[in-house]
């Protein structure tokens, strides 16, 4: 009895046709914008407009890596977003467990707080965030310069700096994904019976042993969901790299794409579309994996 709205089972075929028509229209609306990126990226003479390539080529993709710093952008994006995702999985795994098992007074305020943190618009936080990171960065830079000379210090700061460094972007990207990940993991552990842990406690296992031997294997599905959502959201983020990165060496895919597009007089659409497609693929793949978690995560978020 699933078809409750338009027809009784086995009645006329017309409602089915209507359903197909409506779904086809919505799907066309969703899919058409993607055609241009795909076709233009394979077109030797790509334009801003959707057209069937007269000359099929992979040259645009080659140019992303040969003529521009595409490989570095891909590496930067994968490194930054990958590290942030790993960090989120570790922190949310531990934190979610604590939130699920604790009976302390801070449990409820903390859970309400992470729900409310999720609604704060990041743009409203970036100016103070920038100032905080700048302060941390200056303190850190002075410390590093005590021990190392100019060039070495600069190279080190590129890795561990808070502004225009990998570490700062990784930490901030991870923090922005933490509330949802903590929520997913807390809900996940709520659904795990305590029997296993209690058995481990009886056997004299310490907290760390319990986490490593019992909880991590049990928590893998939850961690996969939390990690995938963190990856997708951090991968698509544009605001944070835009504000925190300025060196060309650190540029990530969204910045590379955006800046290539800003060179107004010399826009090279084939190149841009190839770059956009490269940037798009990991997100689509991750989304494919995340699909089976979508319903439980979104509806879990709704029902608590």
């Amino acid at each position: 009895m699933t078809d409750f709205v338009l027809a009784r089972p086995g009645k006329s075929r017309r409602p089915d046709l209507l359903a197909y028509a409506a779904l086809s229209l919505i799907s066309a609306f969703c899919a058409v914008p993607f055609f241009w990126v795909l076709l233009a990226s394979l077109d030797g003479n790509a334009q801003l407009f959707l057209s069937w390539p007269r000359e099929w080529t992979l040259n645009n993709y080659v140019r992303v890596f040969a003529e521009e710093d595409g490989a570095r952008w891909v590496f930067n994006s994968l490194f930054v977003v990958g590290s942030a995702t790993l960090l989120v999985m570790v922190l949310a795994g531990l934190g979610g467990y604590a939130l699920s098992r604790t009976r302390a007074w801070w449990k409820q305020p903390f859970l309400y707080a992470i729900l409310l943190i999720r609604v704060l618009p990041p743009t409203a936080l970036v100016v103070p965030l920038y100032k905080i990171l700048l302060t941390l960065n200056n303190i850190e830079g002075n410390l590093v310069r005590i021990f190392f000379g100019g060039d070495t210090a600069r190279a080190i700061m590129r890795w561990i700096g808070f502004i225009d460094g990998y570490l700062g972007l990784i930490l901030v990207l991870a923090t922005m994904q933490l509330p949802l990940a903590l929520w997913i993991m807390k809900t996940f552990f709520d659904g795990l019976p305590r029997d296993y842990e209690e058995a481990a406690v009886m056997d004299g296992a310490t907290m760390l042993q319990r986490i490593r031997r019992v909880l991590i294997p049990l928590a893998l599905p939850g961690l996969a969901a939390a990690g995938l959502f963190a990856f997708i959201s951090a991968w698509g983020d544009f605001l944070l790299p835009l504000i925190l990165l300025s060196s060309p060496e650190l540029q990530t895919l969204p910045l590379g794409l955006f800046r290539a597009f800003l060179r107004v007089n010399t826009i090279d659409y084939g190149f841009l579309a190839a770059l956009a497609f490269i940037y798009l693929m990991p997100a689509v793949i991750a989304f494919g994996f995340a699909r089976r978690f979508l319903v439980q995560t979104f509806s879990g978020g709704v029902k608590g």
Partner: peptide, 20 residues
């Protein structure tokens, strides 16, 4: 297909629609 736009990063989405 309906899920696909949700997966597109913001900049890619903007870029595709500039063409549209």
């Amino acid at each position: 297909i309906i899920l696909l736009p949700n997966a597109a990063p913001e900049v890619v989405a903007g870029f595709m629609w500039i063409s549209m």
